[in-house]
Nucleic acid binder design. Structure first.
Lengths: 252, 252
DNA sequence: CGTGAATTTGACTGACATCAACTCAGGTGG
DNA sequence: CCACCTGAGTTGATGTCAGTCAAATTCACG
C-alpha cells in the first residue's frame, strides 16, 4: 500500500480520503477511508479480479449486459451514457481514475448505461458477489460502500440542478470547476489540465450543442477566464469561474 | 403482514416485489422482495423507529441537517428539492407511499436536499445505525438495500436523459407515464389519478415554466390524450402517450 | 359571496439550436 | 517534405421553442 493522494472534495464537505491505494489496484475509493486493518486489506485485495485494459473508444459494458462486477478505474477516463428510445445518446457522467463504475446495475442485475473509455484506460474488476460477502463481514467497508453509492446519488442530483435551472454559461462554468476540483483532489493541478472528452460529449452532457460549447470557450477566453488550446485548458480566474457557477456573477 | 401490492415496474424490467407489507409500517420496499423468514421480519420490525406525521407543506428534513435515519413513506406524497447557490429551487423527485427517503444523506452524514410533504403524510423512521447492524446479519436484506440505492441512481439517470435531450412535450408525457406506472404498481388505477403537486412544482421538476405546463396540459386535452380537471387526470390514450415519451410520435 | 392564490391564455422576446461556411490539426501517401 | 484529406472545432446568420410579461379566469377557502 502506497501513500498517494491528498484529499477528496465531496460536494459541500471535504473529507480526508484517498490517502493511499492498494498494491493490487488503485482502488482508493474502496480501500481507504475507513482505516482497514492489514488483514482486512488483504481480504479485499484477494477478491479484486483481473485487471482489464480498455482502449480508447472501447466499451467496458453495455446497456442490457448482465451485471457481475463493479469496476474501479485504475487509469484513464470514461464516459457513461444512456440511449433514448429514439436512439439519442445522453452522457450521464465522466469518470476518472479512482472512481467506481457500474453501481447503477445492481438494481436489476443488468447495466443501465454504456461505459466507454475516452483514452486508453485500465480498470480492476470487482466481482460483486465476492464483494457482498466481504461487506457482511466488514462493517467499515460496508459503511464506505454505502457512502459511495450515496455520493453517486448526490452527484446526479447536482447534475439535475444544472440541467434543470442553470443557463448555458453557468452550466459550462460548473462543469469546468467540477473537473478542476476533481483533478485537485487527485493531486493534479487544479488550474491546468486536459479535457479528455470532445466538445460534442461536453455539450451532450450539459444539454447544449457543440456550437454552444465552442462559443462558450471563446467567450471565456475573451473574458480572460480561461486559456484554451485544443483540449488543453488553463483556469486563469478560478474565483470568478466559481462565482459564475454559483450564479453570483451577473456581468458574464 | 398483509398481502397487498401486485408488482413493481423498474425501468426496463418488471420484478415481483411489494407483495406484502409489514404490520408495523408500509415498508414494502425494505421488507418484501427477498422472502425474509418470520424471525428476520421481526428483527426488522423492531428497529423501525417511531412513526411520524408530516402535515401538508411540512418539512421532513432540510439540507444540512445531520443524517440519522432513512424514512419509509407510509402514506402521502413528498417532493425533494435542492437549493441553488443563488437560492433557486430544483425539484429532484416526487415520492409516494412505499418509497424511501434520505439515501442521499449517507455520503456525508448530512442531508443534501429538502423533503416536503405535498399532502398530510406519514413516515416510518428507520435509524440508520440500527439498519446497518441488521444489514451485516441479513444478506438478503443487504442485497435488497443495495438494489434500492441503485434504483435511485438509475431513476436519476432517466431524469438526466429527460432534462438533457427531450423536448417539452416529450418531457411532460414521460412525467405522466411515469406517474401512471407507479400508481399501477401500487394497485391503483394507471389511467386515473390526482396530481399531488402544483403546476409550478411539475414545471420546476421538468425544467419548464408553469405556463409551459399549463399549455401542455391544454394541448394534450385538445388532442384527446388526457382529460383534465384541476389536479384530477385521466389518461385517454396511454399508448400514444408512451409513444410520445419514446420520441416515436412526430405529429404531436 | 368575496378575496387571494393558482391556473390559463395570449403577445412578445430571447437564449440557444440549426444550418452553413470556414479553419485548423493531425495523419497519409506520393 | 509537402499536398491532400478527414474529422474536430470555430464562427456567423437565421430560426424556433420555450421563457417572460401581462391580463383574464377559475379555484379554494374563510
Amino acid at each position: 500500500m502506497t501513500i498517494e493522494l491528498p484529499s477528496l472534495t465531496i460536494p459541500g464537505v471535504t473529507v480526508e480520503v484517498l490517502r493511499a491505494k492498494c498494491a493490487t489496484c488503485s482502488m482508493h475509493q474502496l480501500c481507504l477511508p475507513m482505516g482497514l486493518g492489514a488483514a482486512d486489506m488483504d481480504r479485499l485485495d484477494q477478491i479484486i479480479g483481473r485487471r482489464r485494459k480498455v482502449p480508447r473508444g472501447g466499451t467496458l459494458f453495455r446497456i442490457g449486459a448482465p451485471f457481475t462486477s463493479l469496476y474501479a478505474i485504475r487509469l484513464g477516463h470514461f464516459k457513461t451514457y444512456q440511449i433514448n428510445a429514439d436512439g439519442a445518446e445522453q452522457v450521464t457522467g465522466f469518470q476518472m481514475a479512482g472512481e467506481l463504475l457500474g453501481m447503477d446495475a445492481i438494481s436489476t442485475d443488468r447495466h443501465h448505461c454504456n461505459a466507454m473509455a475516452l483514452e486508453d484506460s485500465e480498470v480492476c474488476e470487482i466481482p460483486f458477489s465476492s464483494l457482498q460477502q466481504l461487506l457482511a463481514d466488514m462493517p467499515a467497508l460496508l459503511r464506505h460502500f454505502h457512502r459511495m453509492m450515496s455520493q453517486e446519488i448526490t452527484r446526479e442530483q447536482s447534475v439535475m440542478l444544472l440541467l434543470g435551472n442553470m443557463q448555458a454559461t453557468q452550466r459550462f462554468a460548473a462543469f469546468i470547476v467540477n473537473l478542476s476540483s476533481r483533478y485537485e483532489a487527485r493531486g493534479y493541478s487544479a488550474t491546468q489540465f486536459q479535457l479528455r472528452m470532445s466538445r460534442e460529449e461536453i455539450g451532450n452532457y450539459l444539454g447544449l450543442t457543440i456550437e454552444s460549447i465552442s462559443r462558450l470557450l471563446s467567450k471565456f477566453k475573451k473574458e480572460g477566464l480561461l486559456r484554451v488550446s485544443n483540449r488543453e485548458i488553463e483556469l486563469l480566474d478560478p474565483a470568478r469561474l466559481k462565482a459564475i457557477t454559483a450564479g453570483m456573477d451577473r456581468c458574464g
